[in-house]
Amino acid sequence: MQDVKAILEEIKASPYEEVAILAPHAGKVQFKVAGEGTKVYAPSGTWREKPGTLLASLERERNPRPITCTRKGEVQSVNTQLDGTFVEAGTPLMVLRHFFTKEEVTQAILKKVLFLFPAPERAKYLFAPEVDKKVKVSGCQSIKVKDGMDLFIVSRMKREKPLAYNGPDGILYAVYFSYDQNVDAGQPLVSVCPENQMDMIRDVVNRVQSDWEERE
């Protein structure tokens, strides 16, 4: 296992990332934030029921759709020249500077220390029906995986085929795919933690919780 402290220091040296906000669909855009340096907030509330800061609205067929902030941070730049114009899907609207949260730092570290099972090809992935049922009911950490176990269904060009897990035995720690999104070849699908290392992983999580200071 890699040195968790070193990884944490590495993240501390560069504790933020730039998040590009793209037009989710075509439409007429109107910006709702003041400009550079404005603080923006992610959804909040117990169930994240309060939407994040309103960044812009995108009007299509007289229906304005709010584009809200999904991650906390501050506005770095806004493509103000687009204000009031029709934009195509995927057009960059603004860039936010986002400081990592404890949860994100934890996930980043776990991605480095756990075994990651990669997607063999660009496709959509689903869990095999039995596993899927269990994940939905009891969460992914209820699944013990074994080498050679039929874990996934690969769906590409409307064709489906089974995919067996190949790696160390252990607990399915986290899932990185969603059934409606393509995963590129080499990207992790799941992370697996050997059962005897679960305590160590919990220590990592606790250390991040106590060491990492989230910025306002």
Partner: peptide, 13 residues
């Protein structure tokens, strides 16, 4: 450029 060929709203827009 639109987000999806399956989204009728995109074509209308």
């Amino acid at each position: 450029r639109i987000s999806s060929y399956h989204d009728a709203n995109e074509i209308m827009a």
